[in-house]
Amino acid sequence: MIESSSANARIETIAALSAALGIDPSRFFGIRQQPTRTDERIKCFRLSVAANIRTQRTKRALLQNKLTKLAGLPKGYMSQIQRKALDLTLDVLDQIATALKIGIVQLLRPALP
Rank of each mutant, 00 (worst) to 15 (best):
residue 61 A to V: 03
residue 74 P to M: 07
residue 48 S to T: 07
residue 68 T to D: 08
residue 57 R to S: 07
residue 77 Y to Q: 11
residue 79 S to A: 15
residue 48 S to M: 01
residue 42 I to Q: 06
residue 80 Q to M: 10
residue 84 K to N: 12
residue 53 I to N: 06
residue 43 K to M: 14
residue 76 G to F: 13
residue 57 R to G: 13
residue 85 A to H: 03
residue 59 K to A: 08
residue 51 A to S: 14
residue 41 R to D: 08
residue 79 S to G: 14
residue 45 F to V: 10
residue 43 K to H: 09
residue 41 R to G: 09
residue 69 K to R: 02
residue 62 L to K: 03
residue 61 A to L: 00
residue 57 R to N: 07
residue 64 Q to W: 00
residue 52 N to A: 06
residue 75 K to N: 13
residue 47 L to Y: 00
residue 70 L to T: 00
residue 55 T to K: 02
residue 57 R to H: 00
residue 83 R to N: 15
residue 45 F to E: 08
residue 71 A to Y: 03
residue 42 I to K: 02
residue 55 T to E: 06
residue 73 L to P: 09
residue 48 S to K: 02
residue 62 L to S: 12
residue 62 L to C: 11
residue 51 A to P: 07
residue 81 I to G: 08
residue 60 R to H: 02
residue 80 Q to Y: 06
residue 74 P to A: 12
residue 41 R to H: 03
residue 55 T to G: 06
residue 71 A to H: 00
residue 63 L to A: 05
residue 48 S to F: 04
residue 66 K to M: 07
residue 61 A to N: 04
residue 70 L to N: 05
residue 55 T to D: 06
residue 84 K to H: 15
residue 62 L to T: 11
residue 53 I to S: 08
residue 49 V to C: 09
residue 51 A to L: 07
residue 68 T to N: 03
residue 82 Q to S: 12
residue 65 N to S: 13
residue 40 E to A: 15
residue 81 I to L: 12
residue 75 K to T: 14
residue 80 Q to F: 05
residue 49 V to Y: 00
residue 73 L to N: 06
residue 62 L to E: 00
residue 67 L to A: 00
residue 82 Q to F: 01
residue 84 K to Y: 13
residue 48 S to G: 13
residue 73 L to W: 04
residue 40 E to V: 15
residue 45 F to Y: 04
residue 54 R to N: 03
residue 44 C to I: 12
residue 67 L to H: 02
residue 68 T to W: 02
residue 43 K to S: 13
residue 46 R to Q: 10
residue 59 K to Y: 03
residue 62 L to Y: 03
residue 59 K to T: 06
residue 51 A to D: 12
residue 77 Y to G: 13
residue 57 R to T: 11
residue 75 K to E: 14
residue 68 T to P: 11
residue 77 Y to V: 11
residue 46 R to H: 04
residue 52 N to E: 08
residue 65 N to I: 05
residue 43 K to D: 13
residue 74 P to T: 02
residue 46 R to W: 01
residue 40 E to K: 11
residue 53 I to Y: 01
residue 85 A to E: 07
residue 68 T to R: 00
